[in-house]
């Protein structure tokens, strides 16, 4: 089963640890955080559970169709957008319990002072593209 681990800059439940955003951390703290993330991905590759990981730039643009022959309308970026996706990891695991376990582990990435940041991660199952054989 594939799951998306969604990392938010903002949004989601109230943070449990009050810490400065990463641009205020010391270079060593930033390095330790990044190393934790990449070690986590390597570990999952070794267990045969890693599918993909991507980070997203914090600023994005909203785009929509504006009628035939017209260029699309853009809006944003919005400094105050409530929910902002920072990136994701996709895993392929045996069970929902395993997905929860891994998400918990990823949420323990170190922040200021090397302490776990207890970040909320959103866990979403992928929908399969296969129809059930049973009729």
């Amino acid at each position: 089963m594939k799951y998306l681990l969604l990392k938010h800059y903002r949004g989601g439940p109230e943070p449990v640890v009050d810490y400065e955003t990463i641009d205020h951390w010391s270079p060593d703290e930033v390095d330790a955080h990044m190393r934790y993330m990449s070690d986590f991905a390597s570990k999952l590759e070794a267990t045969g559970e890693f599918v993909d990981a991507q980070a997203l730039a914090p600023e994005g643009t909203f785009v929509r169709y504006d009628g035939e022959g017209r260029p699309p309308v853009t809006d944003g970026p919005f400094a105050e957008t409530k929910d902002l996706v920072a990136g994701w990891m996709v895993i392929d695991v045996e069970s929902h319990e395993r997905a929860l376990e891994l998400a918990g582990e990823l949420s323990a990435a170190p922040g200021p002072g090397g302490e776990p940041i207890h970040e909320w991660l959103e866990l979403r199952p992928f929908m399969s593209n296969k129809a059930e054989t049973a009729e």
């Binding site: 594939k2 999952l44 590759e45 070794a46 267990t47 045969g48 559970e49 890693f50 599918v51 993909d52 392929d92």
Partner: peptide, 15 residues
Amino acid sequence: AYLVPEATMAQRISR
């Protein structure tokens, strides 16, 4: 076939 990277599948098989 299972939509995972080849490295992941190789590790799954060796494990």
